[in-house]
Structure formats: C-alpha cells, structure tokens
Amino acid sequence: MGEVNRSIVLEGNETGFATTKFDSLLNWARKYSLFQYPFITACCGMEFMSLAGPRFDIARFGAEAPRFSPRQSDLLWVVGTISQRQAPALRRIYEQMMEPKWVLAFGTCASCGGFYDNYATVPGIDKIIPTDVYIPGCPPRPEAVIDGLLLLQDKIARGDRTPGIVKPREDVATLGNVNGLVKLEKKSSSKKAER
C-alpha cells in the first residue's frame, strides 16, 4: 500500500507521464489562450472597458490580450450595435480570422438588434456570422460577461459548437420569490397591502 499512497508530485530529478486524449489537451490549451479581437461599436464598450480593467480583470481567464489584427486572434468580441453599413466590415473581419475561431455577442444589440428595430440596424450578428455565445443585457453586467466567457471556455473544452445564451443569475437573497427577482416597494404601500 505504501507504493499507492506515494505523492504524485514529482521531484525535480524524477520523470513521469500523464495520459489524456490529444483533443482534450488541445482544447484545454485553447480555452486559456483566447486572443481577443474587440469589435467595439457602441455604448456596451463602456462595460467592456470595466470588464477589461483591474476590477473584473478577464486576465484571470487567459482572455485579456487583445490583438488588433483579426489574423492573430481567435475570439471575436462583438460589442455594441452593428449597423447595416458596418455589416460588410464585420463579415470581412470574421473571414480574416484563423480557424479555430469563436464569436461572442456582447449585449442585446449584438445578440438580436435590441430595441433598434429599424432600417439601420442588423437584428443580431448571427444573421451575418456564426455566433457561439450570446450575452443579453443592455449593457450586460461584467458578471454576466464573465459567465459568458466561462460558458465559452466550457464549450471549447467540450468541443461543443452549439450557441449558448447566458442565463440570468438568480438572486439568493429572495428565496421563495417566484421570479427570483427583488421587488422594490415603498414601505407604506406594502403595509397597506398587508392589511
């Protein structure tokens, strides 16, 4: 039994090996080295800045290094409203990226056009390019974006290319509330309701 309990941490002069499938190893490496191409067009960009700043710090997930050439990047962040006039540029940038490549739709505008239901706006970037993760919100909170990034990394690790949507977080403070949402009420009116 002594043999079995031996520590698996190797000393410097020892040798050892680990077994894995080559694909899993590759996907593991890919998911922590996402070089991003930020395609930032509108107000969601503000939230993107806070995400990239020290407070939320996407460097923790190995996804912070921007490459301003699509040829060197693997993750296209589409942040903001895409107008019909920008659509050809977005399409070309996507086509210039090397495989494997992923696309993240940041915010409601990029996901489905948001409230811009008009002549000028593309109703969701998936009308033009394949999209891996949608992050709803106008703009989404950085936590939601981090959820989206983790979802994408999870998909990369599993080799799953079906699109995913970030779900809203439940608020644990409101256990028992049907919608899981905090209800804001004036004190007096809630008292009246009780009577």
Partner: peptide, 10 residues
C-alpha cells in the same frame, strides 16, 4: 420594417 442589408442574411 423595411431593411436593406448589405450582406445577405444567413
């Protein structure tokens, strides 16, 4: 509701 896309939609 009329849009005139420059890139044909998928």
């Amino acid at each position: 509701a009329r849009t005139q896309p420059l890139v044909a939609y998928r």
